[in-house]
């Protein structure tokens, strides 16, 4: 009846007057830096991932837990044995997806800002490969849950075996402790975790079991609102712990 027309789409079209590009730009830089550093730490600088102070050995969180496989080729970094697990967890993380779709794919670059490829592209979202694989997040969650438990456990073990005897040991323990705590928080606050503990229930009041699950869900839900903080904090603390361990080696 009335003649209707859609407004034309232009690349990055927007009428925002703030620095909408700043956040995705910084996030892209940070993630790129971290990826490069992690690659260097895990693949190229294998020698320096472990330092010993007073017979207590501090292992870089990139390499923790240490697993020995007899058949693992000698010229391949042992860091690679496990790194796929946390990497997969982070790549399929709901928060990380938001960040990298925005920062690396500009899909969209920011809210109400036009895209690079505009209308005519064949956007499939997460309905086709590879992004449909993001639906496997919960499997990485199971593994990450075990890894995070080990990180926390090895932190406790460090203290037990006397890691606090030296000043350097104290700092290293603190950093590894922070790594363990933030990693644990990051994993526990994950959306899949929230769903599995109680988010899938429709009847919370049905039994004493469901009520317990509901209460846990509410707790995880609270953590979940800070999920993005834990994502970044656990990244930063891993980095710092790894750097410090290498720093001790270099300094001695």
């Amino acid at each position: 009846m009335i003649n209707l027309e859609l407004v034309e789409h232009k690349r990055f079209e927007n009428s925002r007057n703030d620095n909408w590009w700043l956040r995705p730009f910084i996030q892209a830089l940070t993630l790129t830096f971290f990826a490069l550093y992690a690659m260097w730490a895990v693949v190229f600088d294998v020698e320096h991932h472990k330092s010993e102070i007073n017979d207590v050995s501090f292992v870089s969180p990139f390499y923790s837990p240490e697993i020995k496989l007899d058949w693992w080729p000698e010229n391949l970094s042992p860091g690679l044995i496990l790194i796929w697990a946390p990497l997969g967890f982070r790549l399929t993380c709901y928060y990380a997806r938001r960040v990298y779709y925005r920062a690396f794919f500009a899909d969209p670059p920011s809210c109400a800002v036009g895209e690079l490829r505009a209308v005519a592209n064949k956007y499939k979202g997460e309905t086709k490969l590879p992004w449909i694989l993001n639906n496997l997040h919960r499997y990485f969650f199971y593994i990450a849950f075990i890894l995070a438990s080990i990180h926390v456990f090895s932190f406790v073990k460090l203290i037990v075996v006397g890691s606090l005897a030296t000043m350097e040991g104290q700092i290293a323990t603190l950093l590894l402790g922070l790594d363990g705590i933030f990693l644990a928080l990051y994993v526990l606050s994950c959306h899949s975790c929230k769903h599995l503990v109680g988010g899938g229930l429709n009847c919370n009041s049905c039994s004493s079991m469901t009520i317990k699950r509901y209460q846990t869900w509410k707790f995880i839900k609270k953590l979940n609102t800070k999920h993005h903080w834990y994502f970044w904090l656990s990244l930063i603390t891993i980095l710092m712990a790894d750097m410090y361990i290498r720093f001790i080696l270099a300094a001695n």
Binding site: R97, R98, C111, A112, Y123, G125, E126
Partner: peptide
């Protein structure tokens, strides 16, 4: 209804 198309970039929540 195409749930899979959503790539959870969260602008809906922001606005």
């Amino acid at each position: 209804f195409g749930l899979g198309y959503c790539n959870i970039t969260k602008c809906c929540t922001e606005v």
